[in-house]
Computed example of a mutant assay.
Amino acid sequence: MLTLVFLDELLAMAAFGVWGWQHDPRWLLVWLLPLVAMFVWWAFASPKAPRGGPVVRPVAKVIVFGLASLALWEAGRPEWALALLVFSVVVNGLAQLPAISRLPTDALRGDSARTR
């Protein structure tokens, strides 16, 4: 599940690059937009986000994935936009299940199902 969440994050960054490719200055936006999105993700949405929290983290995720889907839609890829949006909702929704949401903190502590 964590691999799918990571894949979802990479797809969102790629979506910003696709949108950047459609606009001038193409060479700048294709790199700059994903970097800005990565910074926002690091600062507000990642598990170790310095500015994250129980309210800020989900809001940042909705903004990043929503804008990534909107970017694909605006870039003329509505089918990709819808697919990314559905995938993001499903994957992030499943990641909130208690058994799955504990995995990152268990890994940091060194816990695993095999050692219990």
Rank of each mutant, 00 (worst) to 15 (best):
V5Y: 04
F6K: 12
F6G: 02
F6R: 12
L7I: 15
L7T: 13
L7P: 02
D8M: 11
D8E: 12
D8G: 10
D8F: 00
E9M: 01
E9A: 11
E9Y: 04
L10W: 14
L10R: 09
A12W: 00
A12L: 00
A12D: 03
M13N: 04
M13S: 07
A14G: 04
A14W: 12
A14T: 15
A15M: 08
G17R: 06
G17T: 08
G17A: 10
G17Q: 06
V18P: 13
V18R: 08
V18K: 02
W19P: 00
W19C: 01
W19S: 02
G20F: 12
G20C: 12
G20K: 05
W21M: 15
W21Q: 10
W21P: 00
Q22G: 01
Q22V: 05
Q22M: 14
Q22F: 02
Q22C: 07
H23S: 05
H23R: 13
H23K: 05
H23W: 13
H23M: 13
D24T: 10
D24V: 06
D24H: 03
P25F: 07
P25R: 02
P25C: 01
R26L: 02
R26E: 15
R26G: 05
R26M: 11
R26V: 07
W27Y: 09
W27H: 09
W27V: 11
L28D: 03
L28N: 03
L29Q: 13
L29S: 07
L29D: 06
L29G: 06
L29C: 07
L29Y: 09
V30Q: 06
V30K: 01
V30C: 06
V30D: 03
V30A: 07
V30T: 14
W31E: 04
L32E: 05
L32V: 14
L33V: 10
L33K: 04
L33S: 04
L33G: 03
L33W: 05
P34W: 02
P34D: 01
L35M: 15
L35Y: 01
L35A: 13
V36Q: 08
A37R: 02
A37E: 05
A37V: 08
A37C: 05
M38F: 14
M38V: 07
M38A: 15
F39C: 09
F39D: 06
F39R: 07
V40W: 07
V40N: 00
V40Y: 02
V40P: 02
W41V: 07
W41Y: 15
W41E: 12
W41N: 14
W42N: 11
W42H: 15
W42L: 13
A43W: 06
A43S: 10
A43M: 14
A43Q: 14
A43E: 06
F44V: 11
F44N: 04
F44S: 08
F44C: 10
F44P: 07
F44E: 11
A45G: 11
S46D: 14
S46W: 05
S46A: 15
S46P: 12
S46V: 13
S46Y: 08
P47Y: 08
K48R: 15
K48W: 14
A49H: 12
A49P: 10
A49C: 10
A49G: 11
A49N: 11
